[in-house]
């Protein structure tokens, strides 16, 4: 997914899920060392992958993004919940996400 497409997609998706414009965006550029594993707790958040990199595996409750995998019939760019990122390359690899953080509803 390109950054342009992600920025077009996010407002529509948030509207669909009933959040309207109650969210903030953060651009996350992660740097993973060879064989690095990273776990992100993204409950009530969305991580939109804006890169298409080989040698990286991104797995969450919504699916898998791993261009070398033959086990999935679809690659997932929108991740939620506990996200496990693994660098399977023998070199340092960069991966970029747009993080959508849902704001708490104000209570009176």
């Amino acid at each position: 997914m390109t950054i342009e497409l992600a920025l077009e997609y996010i407002p529509r998706r948030m509207e669909e899920l009933g959040f309207g414009n109650r969210y903030t965006l953060r651009f996350r550029h992660l740097v993973l060392q060879p064989s690095d594993k990273l776990t992100i707790d993204a409950q009530s958040q969305f991580f939109i992958l804006v890169d298409q990199i080989s040698g990286i595996s991104v797995e969450s409750q919504t699916g898998l993004f791993d261009l070398s995998s033959s086990s999935a019939n679809e690659m997932q760019y929108e991740h939620q919940g506990i996200i496990n990122i693994r660098n399977m390359n023998g070199r340092t690899t960069h991966i970029r996400f747009i993080q959508v953080i849902i704001k708490h509803e104000k209570t009176t």
Binding site: G63, L64, S70, S71, A72, N73, E74, Q76
Partner: peptide
């Protein structure tokens, strides 16, 4: 039919 298959 495949081990650890993820089906959408």
């Amino acid at each position: 039919s495949r081990a650890y298959e993820i089906r959408h």
